[in-house]
Write a protein that binds this DNA or RNA. Structure first.
Lengths: 219, 219
DNA sequence: AATTTTTATTAGACTAATCTAAATACTATA
DNA sequence: TATAGTATTTAGATTAGTCTAATAAAAATT
């Protein structure tokens, strides 16, 4: 049985390694966990003894097979709770993570199974990130930033890059959220600004920075 | 900010003192917390420094004003989560406590406020225990065990004493739960067994022990 | 009232998770 | 390739929460 803290380290290692592809160095993990590099070394040693990570001194760390499953398990719970918070309790995007980071550590397979069922077995969380299944399988969905799609393309907003509170608030204000249908109607040559029609109703202009951070699925 | 463990001690002290009426001795608290008496002494000292309990060496301990509010806060969250688990996720009575004891410690006023609203501001949990309001106010409801009510009385099941898994399972099996309407139709002189009609449909005989542990409200 | 029994507290040690400061290994550059 | 610089690990200390064993206080019993 892992502690909350160990689960959080595992999740951070998994994320920073881009789903286990590369190995993570101590300093970036320390920054992510808001802790001292020395603490990271200590913790990695413990996780290594528990066979949750692959680790060689001075060589960085990565999740092991067991560790990856555990990490995906926590991520699954995190994302399912987010769906609940948004769909049932009307949480705003910027209020989600603080609470979901507590709820994700509740240990009860029955709870998460029933919650999943109650929510209709969602496949994506409110930020458009896919929800791993009970076995840790991830169904990746193609997602492209608006900047990389040609004029004329229509799609559903399935996610955003980054999650700064101010960005999420901006999206809320202009009426863009997960599930919103957008059509790219024009792109200015000079700066890359894009005109998009929101749900077929109003058309607004978004900056290239915003366009880069809104992900559309090819629907 | 109190830790999970501190919150659990506070809750236990509150319960054992019968809502702050008498003071609690170290051994019973140790038993309740499944820990050594020495650990209890240590913890009480800490809680006392934080002004959450009133404590004099060798004289027992009790919740302070601050501590009582904190305890009721945790109890409120516990009971609201139980309502959620039963009403939305179809949990059985005997699966409730393990999960609710984790969920009760989630720190988010917004979460519990929204959850309360989502559930329609319930006043009682699935065991019939009253839910304190945000200020820690408890609306106590008269509850009498079946053994203490005369033949002919009808009422709603609003609670049960004790919560052994086997007892709760028995109740489930015979079709008794919170909200069930019972009428006392007969009481055997020789052993105190009671015949009760369940929701006006079938009549069953229950043992005096069972009768003593089912609480009816005078509805 | 003195003594025994019970109950409660302290003393000292242990683990998990953290820290700062010091030491060590790796990397890059001259 | 020697050295300067950066990244990482170890050493040693700290805090929360726990334990066992020893001590002290209170309660009960003779």
């Amino acid at each position: 049985m892992l502690s909350f803290v160990e689960e959080n380290y595992l999740k951070a290692i998994y994320h920073l390694s881009e789903a286990g592809k590369r190995s993570v160095n101590t300093n970036s993990l320390a920054e992510e966990m808001k802790t001292a590099p020395a603490s990271v070394s200590d913790m990695i040693k413990r996780l290594s003894e528990k066979k949750m990570v692959d680790y060689q001194k001075y060589r960085g760390v990565n999740v092991s097979g067991k560790g990856k499953i555990k990490a995906l398990h926590v991520i699954r719970q995190h994302r399912i709770w987010k769906v609940f918070l948004v769909e049932k309790l009307n949480f705003q995007w910027d209020q989600l993570d603080e609470v979901a980071e507590q709820l994700e550590h509740i240990k009860s397979p029955l709870l998460i199974q029933r919650l999943d069922e109650f929510l209709g077995f969602p496949k994506f969380d409110p930020h458009g990130d896919p929800i791993p299944d009970e076995n840790g399988q991830l169904i990746e969905k193609r997602k492209d930033p608006i900047t990389q799609l040609p004029v004329g393309t229509a799609g559903i907003v399935v996610g955003v890059n980054g999650s700064s509170a101010s960005f999420l608030k901006y999206l809320d204000k202009v009426g863009i959220s997960i599930g919103t249908r957008l059509q790219i109607v024009d792109r200015m040559e000079f700066d890359g600004s894009v005109d998009v029609t929101i749900d077929g109703k109003k058309t607004i202009t978004i900056s290239p920075t915003v366009a880069e951070n809104i992900l559309l699925s090819e629907a």
